[in-house]
Design a protein around this nucleic acid. Structure first.
Length: 441
RNA sequence: UUCAUAGUAAGCCAAUUA
């Protein structure tokens, strides 16, 4: 560890931060674990080496934090920040913000506030990024009033919110079903001299669509042009998807025509939304035509595109169609866990558990790790066939593989056990899930 | 070296009465 650090510190001293970054990423990967002791050791080393080699570029501390982030070791990053604070070293505000961003994205709100507190204690003043993250953190936890309070607080501190800050608030409101309030916030933006941008509009269009308020959503998409903003394919495909979700496929295609008329090409997500609509209606030839069209137009299908078509075939119980598409997919796109779980689930529904298991093996062989969804699909499949022992076996394998069963996994197994008359075992799992603090539904 | 906002695919489906 010392050798890595000495080199990294010297690289930073002479401005070669890129080299330092490569080194520390390697070091974090091989020598830092979640354990407190390995982190304490690294902290003591970095401070010691910094002094002993006359470190003069504190950027090396940022680089260290960044290295943890790149390896998704957020616990380590947080511990390093607090460990450095105790030792009187303060990484940059950006460094703190980066960790806050990752924690927020991961939904780790409690840790988010821990790092935030640490940052204040280190004497760093929040900037507009920090405040925007705070809005997001409160909003994600459903604390809308606190989120709004952040806007007031930052204004008082002389850091006026910008459109992004407002957009985050609007997004959280929409997510909590408070679309009307979100629309009010958009008006408030205007009063505060901020112009709603395409992000503001798309967020609101999405919120309205999710509430099935499609006419209002459509009007808002039109408003983008009316107020003189440059519209884009996100705004249109959000609306397009809204109509698809609502079963109005003709309206969806009208949105596509409108966007083409505006000179905006469909992107992958737009095509995917249309393909989803066609698959939903079982119009598989049309879906395939659209897939071919997108290739012709130079828009590369992705794993989602193929997943939609595969799912469409499976819904029609056309297993051969699904696998033909799967083979075609593999020529250009890497299947994901979702692709495999579509197949496993489809095969389970058709009762072909042997093949389902084979698909799971293929997935593992390709280097993907099974997740809770795919295991649960398999458990359900075995239960439906009355093969309860096999279902329990899969459940066990999942736990041993380090995957935590969720409420749905327990439901599958418990329902299977109940149907097989094994009430004692069903009860045992019910007790177990409560012990694991999962709330039965 | 490092910081923020928008759109698309996967798993459980029980209980009452008839």
């Amino acid at each position: 560890v010392d050798s890595y650090l000495v080199l990294a510190i010297r690289f930073c001293n002479i401005g070669l931060t890129g080299r330092a970054s490569d080194l520390l990423q390697g070091m974090v990967k091989t020598h830092i674990y979640a354990s407190d002791s390995s982190i304490e050791m690294a902290l003591n080393s970095i401070i010691g080496c910094y002094h002993s080699c006359s470190g003069n570029n504190p950027v090396v501390f940022d680089v260290m934090v960044d290295a943890c982030r790149r390896h998704k070791m957020l616990d380590a990053a947080a511990k390093i920040l607090s460990g450095l604070k105790i030792r009187g070293v303060t990484p940059s505000l950006r460094s703190y913000n980066g960790v806050l961003s990752d924690l927020l994205k991961g939904g780790r709100i409690k840790q988010f506030w821990g790092v935030h507190k640490c940052m204040l204690e280190a004497g760093l003043a929040p900037n507009i990024y920090t405040y925007t993250f705070m809005v997001g953190a409160y909003g994600k936890a459903g604390n809308i009033n606190e989120a709004k309070g952040v806007l007031v607080e930052m204004t008082e501190k002389g850091c006026a919110p910008n459109a992004v800050t407002y957009n985050v608030l609007i997004g959280r409101l929409c997510q909590g079903g408070k679309v009307n309030e979100a629309l009010n916030i958009k008006r408030e933006m205007g009063k505060n001299g901020l112009i709603p941008d395409v992000f503001t509009y798309s967020t609101l269009v999405n919120g309205l669509c999710k509430e099935q308020r499609l006419q209002e959503a459509k009007a808002l998409v039109a408003e983008i042009l009316n107020v003189g903003l440059k519209t884009n394919c996100v705004a249109y495909s959000t609306l397009l998807d809204g109509f698809i979700s609502n079963g109005e496929i003709d309206e969806a295609f009208k949105v596509r025509d409108e966007m083409l008329a505006q000179g905006i090409q469909l992107d992958v997500t737009g095509y995917n939304a249309l393909i989803r609509g066609l698959c939903k209606l079982g119009k598989m030839e049309k879906a395939c035509q659209l897939l071919n069209e997108m290739v012709r137009m130079g828009c590369e299908p992705d794993a989602v595109t193929y997943g939609l078509v595969i799912g469409g075939y499976l819904k029609d119980k056309d297993v051969n169609g699904a696998f033909t598409m799967f083979e075609k997919m593999k020529k250009s796109v890497m299947p994901t866990v979702v692709t495999y779980s579509l197949l496993v689930n489809g095969l389970c529904h058709g009762g072909d558990l042997q093949r389902a298991d084979g698909v799971l093996h293929e997935m593992v062989a390709s280097g993907l790790k099974p997740n809770v969804v795919i295991y649960t699909a398999l458990i359900t499949g075995y239960c439906r066939k009355g093969r309860i022992e096999d279902a329990r076996e899969v459940f066990k394998r999942m736990v041993e593989g380090g995957i935590t069963p969720d409420v749905r996994s327990y439901n599958s197994l418990i329902i299977g056990l109940c149907k097989a008359g094994e009430m004692d075992n069903a009860n045992m799992y019910l007790v177990e899930m409560k012990e694991k603090r999962l709330t039965p539904n």
